[in-house]
Design a protein around this nucleic acid. Structure first.
Lengths: 168, 168
DNA sequence: TTAAACTTTCAATATATTTTGAAAGTTTAA
DNA sequence: TTAAACTTTCAAAATATATTGAAAGTTTAA
C-alpha cells in the first residue's frame, strides 16, 4: 500500500469508528485528515480533500475546536484561517474522555442519583428490582467517573504503567 | 417522584445514553425495561409498555439476545416466549465491552496494524506525520485492548479494588 | 390434518441526521 | 468608504436509520 492510499484508508477507518461511537463521520474524517497532515490546512483544502461543502467544513471545524481537538492558526500576512490538530494521542484520548464525561456521563449520574432516592415498599418486587438495578448501575457509573477523573489528571506513561502492574 | 414515574425516567435516560453511544434507542429502552422488571415479559407486554410495533419489538429482542444481554424463557404449558434480562451490572458491562471490542475495536486494530506497515521516506514530513500518528494510535488502541481483556476475565470487586489501589 | 397461537420478515413509511450552497455577515487593505 | 477575501448561517435537500404493520412462516394441541 502506498502513502496516498494509506491516508485514504486511515481517514475512512477513523470515520467509521467515529460513527459507530456516536461521533459524526465527517467530523472524525476531518480530524483524521488533520492528524496525518504535517502543517495546518485551510477550509478550502479540507473541502477539496474530503469532497465536502463549505458549510459542512465550517461547522465541523467549529465542532472540533469545541471538542478541543484542533486549533486555528493565523499566518502572518494572510487572511485565511489555518487549522491544525493536536497530534498527541494521549491528549486526544483525554480530551474526548473529558468532553463525553461532561456531555453524557454527568447528566446520567445526576439522573441516577435522583432515581436512587425514590422510596418504596421493601416487600414490593417491582420496587426492589427497580431499586437494585438503579443502585448498581449508579455504583458502576461512579466507578467509571472516578477512573476517568484519574485518567484526566494523569500522565500517559504513569497511567498505563500502573495498569500493567496490576493487569500483568 | 413515584415508582411509575421513576421507571419512565430510567427508561428514557437509558435510551438517551444508548443513542449517544451508537446503540439504537429502542434497544436500550427495551433493555432498561427488562432490567427493572422482576419477571420475564412477553413481546406483547413490551410492545404495549413502550408503544412500539410488533416488528420492532421482535427485531430488538433478537438483537438484545445477540448482544448477550437478555434471554428467552419458556414457561411450562405456555406457547408464548418470555424475555428477561441479566440483572448483574458487571456482567452487562462486560458483555457490552466484549461485543463492542469484537465488532469495532478488532477491525480497527487490524486496519492500524496494516497501516503501521506502510513504508516511506524518513525525510518526507508527509510520511513522518502519518507514520507517527498511526503508530501512536495503534499503541493506544492496543493498550485499551489489553485492559479490556483483563476486564473481561476479571471479577468486579477485584477489578475496581485494583484500580483504586493505584488511583487512590 | 387443521386452525389457532404465536413469531418472523421486509417493503413501505416515517423519523432523524447530515449535508449542501447560496445569501448574509465580517474583516481587512487600500 | 469600498470592495475583495474570507467566514458563518440556515432553510432546503439528501441521506441514513429506525419503525410499522400486514403477510408469510412456524409451532403446537386437539
Amino acid at each position: 500500500m502506498d502513502l496516498p492510499e494509506a491516508k485514504k484508508k486511515f481517514i475512512e477507518t477513523w470515520g467509521k469508528l467515529g460513527s459507530e461511537w456516536g461521533i459524526n463521520r465527517t467530523m472524525a474524517q476531518v480530524h483524521a485528515l488533520l492528524l496525518i497532515t504535517p502543517d495546518a490546512l485551510t477550509t478550502e483544502e479540507i473541502m477539496e480533500t474530503l469532497s465536502i461543502s463549505r458549510g459542512n467544513a465550517n461547522m465541523t471545524l467549529r465542532d472540533l475546536i469545541g471538542w478541543g481537538l484542533i486549533e486555528k492558526q493565523h499566518k502572518a500576512g494572510e487572511r485565511k484561517e489555518y487549522f491544525y490538530a493536536d497530534k498527541d494521542t494521549w491528549n486526544i484520548a483525554r480530551q474526548v474522555a473529558k468532553e463525553r464525561r461532561k456531555r453524557e456521563l454527568d447528566p446520567v449520574l445526576k439522573a441516577l442519583d435522583e432515581l436512587s432516592k425514590v422510596e418504596g415498599d421493601a416487600n414490593d418486587p417491582e420496587f426492589n428490582t427497580f431499586n437494585k438495578s438503579v443502585t448498581d448501575i449508579n455504583k458502576l457509573a461512579k466507578n467509571v467517573d472516578r477512573t476517568l477523573d484519574t485518567m484526566l489528571k494523569a500522565e500517559e506513561s504513569w497511567f498505563w504503567g500502573s495498569l500493567f502492574k496490576i493487569f500483568k
